[in-house]
Design a protein around this nucleic acid. Structure first.
Lengths: 112, 112
DNA sequence: GCGATACATCGACAATCATCAATATATCGC
DNA sequence: GCGATATATTGATGATTGTCGATGTATCGC
């Protein structure tokens, strides 16, 4: 398969600002999913932690600062990855996360 | 009272981008509330409808294009107003909504 | 005051979500 | 293969959310 989540990519890629024409239902649907990934304080902190790091961040370094259990962190990271805001790379036993600046920029563009 | 919702205003006003330092819990909490206002397709379409209008938009003109009942639209508009994304002004029987560009820009700034 | 109109609130319900303990899966070193 | 480790998935539960019908509140014209 080319992409696990295809719908949000299209809308976010076209970067149509909210201030332009009204959104149709499909655009609104996929954009809402993207913003929903940011609508949780734990996920915002996880994203912030990854974005403020110089390079990649190991999943094992996310559990303790988030104050949540390992399954819960894994759950939230899956949501961030599915939203395209974070890229996931597995190396051996460890999983490394890296911010997806283009996708974040696309979301930002929608707001202006 | 000075403001019904005080917490989100502070964080959004300071415009700290996610890419800078990690968010503390309070910042993440109020930012998540702001993004949650954008995490619903109906609200995104309502906001888009208002933002793309030249001036104000009457509440009576939001029900039909949104495809939701009047109480539901009122509910969503309250969420947008509480998030500070839309300003509300009552004139006589009608309520007029206007986009809050500064607040939207502040949210955008948080993303980068 | 009275009826009509525009919007908000209430109450209820179904759906979604965040969370954790328990368990499963994958990979390493030996 | 075997034990150990890192992460993902499952199952369950309490909390939150979107929705609507019914009702409440505020404002207008008369």
């Amino acid at each position: 398969m080319a992409a696990t989540v295809s719908a949000p990519i299209d809308v976010l890629a076209c970067c149509a600002p909210v201030s332009a024409d009204p959104l149709d239902e499909q655009q609104a649907e996929s954009l809402a999913r993207a913003f929903a990934a940011l609508a949780d304080p734990i996920r915002l902190r996880l994203l912030s932690f990854i974005t403020s790091a110089d390079d990649q961040v190991c999943a094992c370094d996310l559990v303790e600062p988030s104050g949540r259990s390992q399954p819960t962190v894994s759950h939230h990271m899956k949501i961030l990855v599915d939203a395209g805001l974070v890229d996931r790379e597995k190396r051996g036993l460890w999983v490394w996360y890296r911010a997806a600046p283009q996708r974040i920029a696309a979301l930002r563009a929608v707001l202006g």
